[in-house]
Design a protein around this nucleic acid. Structure first.
Length: 662
DNA sequence: GGGCAGCGCAC
DNA sequence: GTGCGC
DNA sequence: GCCC
């Protein structure tokens, strides 16, 4: 039925996708669309358009494509609806597979069902149609773009994919590889090798039916031995997971209750999930609608827990590299920094938590509902995640990044002492570069340092150097008072390969208040300044106050064996902090200054759930809070000296510092 | 619709 | 008190 | 932004 014209157009249109070159990224839906928009004025009087709504030309994303449906009829109301919808967006419904560009297969069917209809002699010179499940057109419509048909979520059961990573290798994925004209017809006729049955069925939310299983399997992948999954995950794991879940979900599960309700609620939640999702999934027309069905994640700990596991890995800054969701994370991080820039504190927080969740996933999250199940990922973020996965971009982000002031904002915010307020102000005044600032703006002393040493201070410090810096300070300190302890906290204590700054916790046995340490710090700082190790003060406790911290900059001197052979040696300015901690508070302080901050927040949240309060000074109980959580009493001190004890009392299994990446 | 940590220091 | 950093 |  489709005239040759249509066919060739089809081929042309999807040439990217059908290309034999695997390196071509197929996701350029936009390209395809624009191209089509231009030509669409040509001939597009599709057959039975009578009852169809007319979509604006720009929405004719399927223009030139023809869909062959399996089953090949529109008897089922749902399928008819979908077919019509595809037509609204420019698709042609063909009843002849030879002319189809896409074969849309009902989800219940498996790849074998397609094979039966597949022409024995292949498709000759043309590329075989792409075989996708019924979600494919819906997603295209949702995103108003031709998305990559090779994505896992569009595969049928039994359909083989070579897709492993995410972006590269897109083409061969759907199996609908065009092996090229030269190849055997066999190859093109049966591109998918059903024999390689992929045991696993990711297609739709693998974990959905049995969340725990799904999770476990992913766990096994990433932590093969650490959590010898077997049957009895150490109790520790549960607690850890639970704990972590607290970190990311502020007010979730009442820990207090958890002793009684946990197992049950878990399984119940899972069951529900299956039903709801499947039911709605097969009958709703629009994906967005289907997916917006209420989340079935009722205090769903099982999921939450396990999702947290991966958190254990000592994450370096590049810890996301191998993550299957790397691309998604990358995009969300951009959104995150965008919101940071525009001063949207809470959105920033939300994105950070969502990113944290995603980082812990060991399988790629491809659909909205998969994402939605995860903690700290709500409807909006889940939609964005799916948009990223399917279109490889994010419209909202593109708008955001178009804002001309964007880069300036980014620049200014990296100046020490400059936050959103000031940065926005400067921008409003028309400044865009550091030079502008240097010339026109009156800076505070801190900001001055921040500007003058902008590059240095925004360069991460290799772990080795942190160690070296630590040695310098410790040596000087030991000379003055051998009893004083200096502990390097922050990301260094968590085992980071590089740090943004170096934090010293300064303490000494027998001290009960920072006052006992102040004079020491003053002496130490004075000495280190004389040594020209400390080169700037940014914030330091004043004489009168009960000051407990000192922020400044230091430089690493030449050290034999470390950097003395480097003729390029240049003292790089580094951020350095001293935090005075009386020995009695050391445990609480260590927790606080080791972080990371998400970890800390959850600890505090956990404490608060248990009627306790945790801060850098200690763990308190029976905190009375008035309306609006206003603290009425300090509460009774429970523990502050012993880091492990604080974990214990909170009912949390001990976690080494390097296990506190969240 | 409200909370999302809370504190020390600079200004 | 606000802004900022942690 | 998310969660309750």
């Amino acid at each position: 039925m489709p005239p040759p014209v249509s066919l060739s157009r089809s081929l042309e249109t999807c040439s990217e996708e059908a290309s034999s070159s695997p390196s071509v990224n197929v996701r350029a839906g936009a390209t395809t669309r624009t191209q089509k928009t231009k030509t669409s004025s040509g001939n597009k009087k599709r057959g039975r358009v009578a009852t169809l709504k007319t979509r604006p030309e720009v929405e004719q994303i399927f223009e030139g494509l023809s869909f062959f449906y399996i089953p090949d009829n529109d008897i089922a109301p749902v399928r008819r609806l979908r077919i019509n919808r595809a037509k609204e967006f420019g698709a042609e419904w063909t009843r002849d597979m030879m002319t189809a560009t896409h074969v849309i297969v009902e989800k219940k069917l498996v790849y074998k069902d397609v094979e039966k209809l597949w022409p024995k002699d292949g498709f000759g010179d043309r590329a075989p149609p792409k075989v996708v499940n019924e979600d494919y057109p819906l997603d295209c419509i949702q995103f108003r773009a031709i998305v990559d048909p090779g994505q896992k979520k569009y595969l049928l059961d039994g359909q083989v994919t070579t897709e492993t990573k995410d972006k590269e290798v897109l083409l061969p994925t759907s199996g609908v590889v065009d092996s090229g004209p030269g190849t055997k017809s066999k190859a093109s006729s049966l591109p998918l090798k059903p024999q390689h049955h992929n045991k696993r069925k990711w297609d739709y939310v693998p974990p959905r039916g049995t969340p725990s299983q799904g999770e476990e399997s992913s766990l096994m992948k990433s932590l093969p031995k650490a959590n010898a999954r077997s049957k009895t995950p150490p109790k520790k794991d549960d607690e850890l997971s639970e704990f972590i879940s607290m970190m990311q979900e502020f007010k979730d599960l009442p820990l207090d209750v958890d002793e009684d309700d946990d197992a049950q609620s878990t399984s119940v939640g899972s069951q529900h999930q299956v039903d709801l999702d499947q039911g709605s999934g097969s009958e709703n027309e629009r994906p967005s609608k289907r997916r917006s069905s209420r989340r079935v994640r009722p205090t769903n700990k099982a999921i939450t827990f396990k999702d947290r596991f991966a958190c254990n890995r000592a994450g370096r800054k590049d810890a996301g590299q191998d993550n299957p969701n790397a691309r998604t994370i990358e995009m969300l991080q951009k959104m995150n920094s965008y919101y940071e820039r525009v001063n949207d504190h809470w959105r920033t927080l939300a994105y950070r938590k969502a990113i944290g969740t995603l980082k812990q996933q060991t399988v790629k999250i491809t659909t909205e509902e998969e994402a939605y199940r995860l903690p700290s990922i709500g409807r909006r973020l889940a939609q964005k995640i799916e948009e990223i996965v399917t279109t490889d971009k994010l419209k909202r982000l593109e708008y955001a990044e178009e804002e001309p002031t964007n880069s300036a904002l980014q620049t200014f915010l990296k100046i020490y002492g400059v936050g959103n307020k000031v940065a926005q102000q400067w921008i409003a005044q028309g400044w865009r570069t550091l030079d502008d600032i240097k010339q026109h703006v009156k800076l505070t002393p801190s900001q001055m340092v921040g500007v003058e040493h902008y590059d240095d201070l925004n360069t991460r410090i290799p772990r080795k150097e942190v160690t070296a810096l630590g040695e310098v300070v410790k040596r000087a300190a030991a000379k003055m008072d051998p009893m004083v302890q200096l502990i390097i906290g922050g990301s260094y204590r968590r085992g980071a390969e590089s740090s943004h700054d170096i934090d010293f916790i300064v303490t000494k046995p027998g001290t009960e208040s920072v006052a006992h340490l102040k004079s020491f710090l003053n002496t130490l700082v004075a000495q280190l300044e004389r040594d020209e190790f400390l080169v700037a003060r940014l914030a330091s406790s004043r004489a009168g106050s009960d000051g407990s911290k000192w922020h400044g900059c230091c430089v690493l001197p030449k050290i034999k064996g470390l950097n003395d052979d480097d003729e390029e040696y240049r003292p790089i300015w580094r951020r350095i902090d001293f935090l005075l901690v009386p020995e009695v508070e050391l445990g609480a302080a260590l927790i606080y200054f080791t972080g990371n901050d998400i970890f800390n927040r959850s600890m505090r949240l956990l404490a608060s759930k248990k009627g306790m309060r945790l801060n850098q000074h200690g763990l308190y109980r029976d905190v009375l809070r008035g309306p609006d959580r206003v603290k009425v009493t300090e509460g009774e001190l429970v523990e502050r000296r012993d880091e492990r004890r604080i974990f214990e009392i909170l009912g949390v299994t001990w976690r080494e510092p390097w296990e506190r990446w969240c």
